[in-house]
Computed example of a mutant assay.
Amino acid sequence: MPKAYWVSAYRTISDPDKLAAYNKLAASAVEAGGGRALVRGGRVVAHDAGIAERTVLIEFDSFAEAVAARESAAYQEALAMLADGVERDFRIVEGIE
Rank of each mutant, 00 (worst) to 15 (best):
M1Y: 13
M1Q: 14
P2K: 02
K3H: 06
K3F: 03
K3M: 02
A4D: 04
A4I: 00
Y5Q: 03
Y5F: 08
S8G: 13
S8F: 08
A9K: 15
Y10F: 10
T12Y: 10
S14Q: 14
S14H: 10
D15G: 00
P16C: 06
D17F: 09
L19K: 06
L19F: 02
A20S: 12
A21T: 03
Y22K: 08
K24E: 15
L25V: 02
L25E: 11
A26V: 01
V30N: 08
E31L: 10
A32K: 07
A32L: 03
G33E: 01
R36H: 12
A37H: 15
G41H: 07
G41D: 10
G42Q: 05
G42S: 05
V44L: 05
V45N: 14
V45I: 13
V45K: 14
A46R: 03
A46C: 02
D48P: 08
A49H: 15
A49Q: 15
A49N: 15
G50D: 08
I51A: 15
I51W: 13
A52W: 00
A52T: 01
R54N: 08
T55V: 11
T55P: 00
L57R: 01
D61A: 04
D61F: 07
S62T: 10
S62R: 04
S62G: 07
F63Y: 15
A64P: 07
A66K: 03
A66M: 01
A68K: 04
A69K: 00
A69V: 04
A69C: 03
R70S: 13
R70C: 12
E71C: 05
E71N: 11
A73F: 10
Y75L: 03
Y75K: 07
Y75N: 04
Q76K: 11
Q76Y: 03
E77A: 14
E77Q: 13
E77R: 12
A78W: 06
A78K: 00
A80N: 07
M81L: 15
L82V: 06
L82D: 11
L82W: 04
L82Q: 05
A83P: 00
E87R: 12
R88Q: 13
D89N: 14
D89R: 13
F90C: 12
R91L: 14
I92H: 10
I92L: 02
I92C: 06
V93T: 00
E94A: 03
G95A: 03
G95D: 00
G95W: 01
E97C: 11
E97I: 07
